[in-house]
């Protein structure tokens, strides 16, 4: 079972994702893709840790190369999020660079094989007005391709708007 959650920033994706995992009996893994750069990301990470602390998650920090991640045992995984993972694969030293899209998608496949429930969180970033002079458009395109491929693989695709789930596919 693969569930893809999408939506804008701070729209309640994480909280909804964690609610979806309630009542799950097996091992629960939280795959954190956000590299802690500076105070802002540390704050966000602390907030997410707090939300998960009572829910029995084992946290695995994995910023790149998801495709070679081996989980200790089959279970549920919550992957958060494709927007960070894609940026890491594109821009980080250890990333896949030009093969970022392939690396992320193979990573999702790898996780899917090792889980009975996989919840993937991503982000909508393509609805701004493109006035970026740098590699941002390339990032937006890559994340768009990844989101479409992930949605095609998913059993359910849910968009969150102000914390309200909108079922794009169920």
């Amino acid at each position: 079972m693969l569930i893809l959650l999408t939506g804008g920033a701070a729209c309640g994706k994480s909280a909804y994702a964690e609610r979806l995992t309630e009542g799950y009996e097996g091992r629960k893994y939280y795959i954190a893709a956000m590299e802690p750069f500076g105070e802002e990301s540390l704050k966000k990470i602390a907030r997410h840790r707090e939300m998960r602390s009572t829910r029995g998650f084992e946290t695995i920090e994995r910023y790149t190369d998801l495709e070679h991640l081996v989980l200790p045992e089959k279970g549920l995984a919550l992957l958060e999020c494709l927007c960070n993972l894609t940026a890491n694969e594109m821009f980080s030293e250890k990333g896949a660079g030009r093969d970022a899209v392939g690396a992320v998608l193979r990573g999702i496949e790898t996780l899917k094989k090792q889980t009975d429930t996989l919840i993937v969180v991503t982000n909508e970033v393509g609805s701004g007005y493109d006035t970026y002079g740098d590699r941002t458009p390339e990032y937006i395109d890559n994340l768009g391709i990844i989101n479409r491929a992930a949605a095609a693989l998913a059993d359910q695709v849910i968009e969150l708007v102000c914390g309200i789930p909108i079922f794009l596919r169920r």
Partner: peptide, 11 residues
């Protein structure tokens, strides 16, 4: 309509 690279052309 849809965001950049959301899949409009494929649709």
């Amino acid at each position: 309509i849809g965001g950049r690279s959301a899949g409009k052309l494929d649709y």
